[in-house]
Amino acid sequence: MRKIQILDYGSGNLFSIENALKQSDSIEVQVSSELTESVDGLVLPGVGSFSSAQKILTRNKDRILDAVKSRKLPLLGICLGMQLLFEESEEGTGEGLKLFKGRVKRFSPKEESMKIPHMGWNTINLDSSDSTFCKGLRSGEWTYYVHSYFPVPEDAKVVRAWTQYGSERFASIVESENILGTQFHPEKSQATGAKLISNFVSLVAGN
């Protein structure tokens, strides 16, 4: 049976993403703070603080990069986990995985009604019809967000969906071959999130 690992940063709710992945009978799910060589898919979850995540990430960085590049390990980054796929962040001094070019920046409210964090339900606007990850999704579907930072990809071709918050339009889904990311929480986004998770599981299962 194919295995998906959730990288454990040591803080926060991993139960929900684990529960969401387990809806599929075709995979096993394991949670660990060390990347296991034998896994077929990896999830960088969207919970925990930036510093705790970065500590664990740094320890696993070489192994993750090697697996993602040489054996095309499917990788899904959620929220903070998606931001870690980029080069660097305004939130901390360390480096990300640099799998995508671009920086992670903080929302800078230009109007008073724009609260930080961006918290709650917002809609996605799909940018590409040719996406394995977004199969079955439509523009206008609702997804759940909690974040103060967002990545700005240098290469717009990796962006699969955009989301508008106040005066800011940011990339909410990115995809490049086996590397996937969502700024929202698919595990908390009901049917829309379940479709994305199922598409990721299909990629891992190789069908």
Partner: peptide, 30 residues
């Protein structure tokens, strides 16, 4: 770790305001 997405604090934070900073540092502001 058992599935809640957020915790809410009230009296304990008023009595010990540094609890808010500690929680944000460990688990994240969200």
């Amino acid at each position: 770790s058992n599935g809640a997405d957020k915790v809410s604090v009230n009296t304990s934070a008023v009595e010990n305001p540094s609890l808010v900073s500690e929680l944000a540092d460990v688990f994240g502001q969200q």
